[in-house]
Write a protein that binds this DNA or RNA. Structure first.
Length: 583
RNA sequence: GCGCCCGUAGCUCAGUUGGAUAGAGCACCGGAUUUCUAAUCCGGAUGUCGCAGGUUCGAGUCCUGCCGGGCGCGCCA
């Protein structure tokens, strides 16, 4: 049971009773009624703004609503106090038994604690990474990859039917350049000295084995032929090879996406036409001339009639071209088709995770989805800011020209998958993030992953010790659920339960806000509370978890920390990090 | 010139979608270790929430205008 939802129902019922008694008007709107934990715990367990929210509708002063309502709430089961504070807040205290029962909820749910049916199985598509298939992933891709993956986990947790998707940009000129680069590597594999890779092509060593693979398969079949003859074959072979590389990179981070959607497929199978036709059918396409861009006007700008989408009718700044001067579709046209395809597949809700440098693209994408779906679909574009790498207090400088990008693989190999995943969530997505190699390798609380893992490992350690020292004490979750929780009397123990009881709501709020970093922050706080309680046992031996002389209390405390372990595991599962059992 | 994002303690950042006296970590000082893993914990203080208005019972949060920083701005992808 979510205590806040429960209290909210009780408040609404109580207001109804007051209405029946003629004290307040009936049929009031409770949309803005909030029930939450007060920031200051001394104010109580839950606070509500009910009287403040209803004051306008009721035409009464806040205190005149709060007084009878508080009196009524004070009479409810589990409520031990109801005080009016400030301008008209009602602060409630709930009995320790009520909270102990919440620990029972945790133990019954296990690592599934916090699962929600909030989304009710609604379909949602989360697109992330979508890096050009021209090379291995580097640190610039990592943040979006982790963010998207954890968001997908989080949305599943609250009941969405999630599709994790990757859009392969395999139709543009960059894959032609990839193919040309590989052709050079192919010639090299056949013994030719190709010298330095020409400007504009991809110099990376990772293409050497691709050239060799074609040489091994086809020999010199492609050697003395025109580019038009080999380009398509080299392109498709190279893209396949690069996507294998990308998938392996993602796998090293524990990421496995469901759909890899090819842009070129849209071009080949008339997908673009079908997407654009859909807009045309709504009368949203016309031929017109665009103004030159503001600011720096390109030298070769010339006004020209173009096929345009009326994006400005859907919140974009200007209408957007769908065809280039040579008659080919623009990249944007492919994006129209791509989102059209997602809608056709039944995804009314979509999330695109993009780098911050795509900020200028957001409005037109949202306009497309709005237009194509007659405002039924929604697209949420989440931008991830840059990651700066720090080593020894210095910024690690990377440049495209020098080709010294730190790859995703190097990052994972140096600090480990769990650390990378967790560290990427230590900031909200739209704030820049510093990734400090020194902190990432640290085995202390400077390293948030370690800190949370350590809490989990400590709990496992206690349970192992009990199995060893008190073998007659059953420590399986089903046994612990039957423990006499009334033995938990210390305020620190009850506070820990309260913190756990906030988990389901934290999960739902994080999912709704599309902010997976909140999970990481929650886990850090829960771990902190656990470590504090642990140390309290050092100072006061009668607060230790294992009390050999008092087995019922020991069992109750084991139930408490097993609950913490479940919540930690539940959260780490969303982040995609293994809960460590030993360290 | 325009659009989007950001601006909170000395530093790095949270801030429960509008709630009460704005919070953590780092750094700095002091304390706890015959341990259920001290890889941890406890105590100590700092704020013009960039500036100025507005909306209302109530603003770090919403609106407007400035200031400062980042990203982007024709058919590239």
């Amino acid at each position: 049971m979510d205590p806040y939802a429960y209290i909210r129902e009780q408040i609404i019922a109580s207001v109804g009773a007051l209405a029946d008694a003629g004290i307040v008007p009936s049929n009031m709107d409770f949309a803005n009624l909030a029930v939450e934990a007060p920031r200051d715990p001394s104010h109580g367990d839950v606070a509500t703004n009910a009287a403040l929210v209803l004051t306008k509708q009721a035409g009464m002063k806040p205190r005149d609503i709060a007084a009878p309502l508080a009196e009524r709430l004070a009479g409810l089961e589990h409520v031990t106090a109801a005080d009016i504070a400030g301008p008209g807040f009602i602060n409630l205290r709930l009995s320790d038994d009520f909270w102990r029962a919440r620990l029972g909820d945790v133990l019954a749910a296990g690592p599934g604690y916090g699962d929600s049916t909030q989304a009710n199985g609604a379909k949602i598509n989360v697109e992330y990474v979508s890096a050009n298939p021209t090379g291995p992933l580097h640190v610039g891709h990592v943040r979006g990859a982790v963010y998207g993956d954890v968001l997908a986990n989080l949305l599943s947790k609250v009941g969405y039917d999630v599709c994790k998707e990757y859009y392969i940009n395999d139709a543009g000129s960059q894959v032609d350049e990839l193919a040309r680069s590989v052709h050079l590597r192919y010639r090299e594999a056949l013994g030719e000295d190709i010298g330095a890779m020409p400007e504009g092509l991809y110099p990376g060593d990772y293409l050497i084995p691709v050239g060799q693979a074609i040489a091994a398969r086809d020999g010199d079949d492609w050697l003395n032929r025109a580019e038009t003859e080999w380009l398509a074959e080299f392109r498709s072979f190279s893209v396949d090879a690069m996507m294998d590389l990308v998938r392996a990179d993602l796998a090293s981070l524990g990421i496995e996406q469901d759909v890899f959607f090819s842009e070129e497929g849209l071009h080949n199978e008339g997908g673009i036409t079908s997407g654009v036709d859909s807009l045309a059918g709504k009368g949203l396409i016309y031929t017109g001339v665009l103004e030159p861009p503001k600011g720096k006007t390109p030298e070769d700008w010339e006004p020209r009639p173009q096929t345009l989408f009326k994006a400005s009718e859907f919140g974009d700044d200007v209408d957007r071209p769908l065809k280039k001067s040579d008659g080919a579709w623009t990249y944007f046209a492919a994006d129209v088709a791509y989102h059209h395809d997602k809608l056709q597949r039944g995804y009314l809700q979509m999330v695109d995770v993009l780098g911050a440098d795509h900020g200028g693209y957001v409005k037109r994408l949202k306009a497309v989805v709005k237009a194509l779906s007659d405002d039924q679909g929604s697209l949420d574009v989440r931008l991830c800011q840059m990651v700066r790498l720090l080593r020894g207090g210095e910024v690690v400088v990377m440049s495209k020209r020098a080709g010294n990008f730190v790859t995703l693989r190097e990052l994972v190999e140096e600090v480990g998958r769990d650390v990378v995943r967790f560290m990427m969530l230590t900031r909200k997505n739209d704030a820049p993030l510093d990734f400090d190699f020194d902190a990432a390798r640290e085995q202390s609380k400077d390293n948030p992953v370690f800190y949370v893992q350590y809490a989990h490992a400590r709990i496992c350690s206690v349970l192992r010790r009990v199995a060893d020292e008190l073998p007659e004490l059953a420590v399986e979750p089903e046994n612990l659920a039957g423990a006499d929780l009334a033995r938990l009397t210390d305020s620190a123990e009850i506070d820990l339960i309260k913190q756990m009881a906030a988990w389901p709501r934290a999960v739902e709020a994080a999912a709704q806000a599309r902010e997976p970093h909140r999970i990481a922050f929650y886990l850090n706080e829960l771990a902190s509370s656990f470590h504090a309680l642990w140390n309290k046992g050092n100072a006061e031996p009668n607060l230790r978890f294992i009390m050999a002389a008092d087995q019922p209390t020991t069992q109750a405390r084991l139930a408490l920390i097993k609950g913490v372990a479940f919540v930690l595991a539940s959260g780490l599962a969303i982040i995609g990090v293994e809960p460590a059992e030993t360290m």
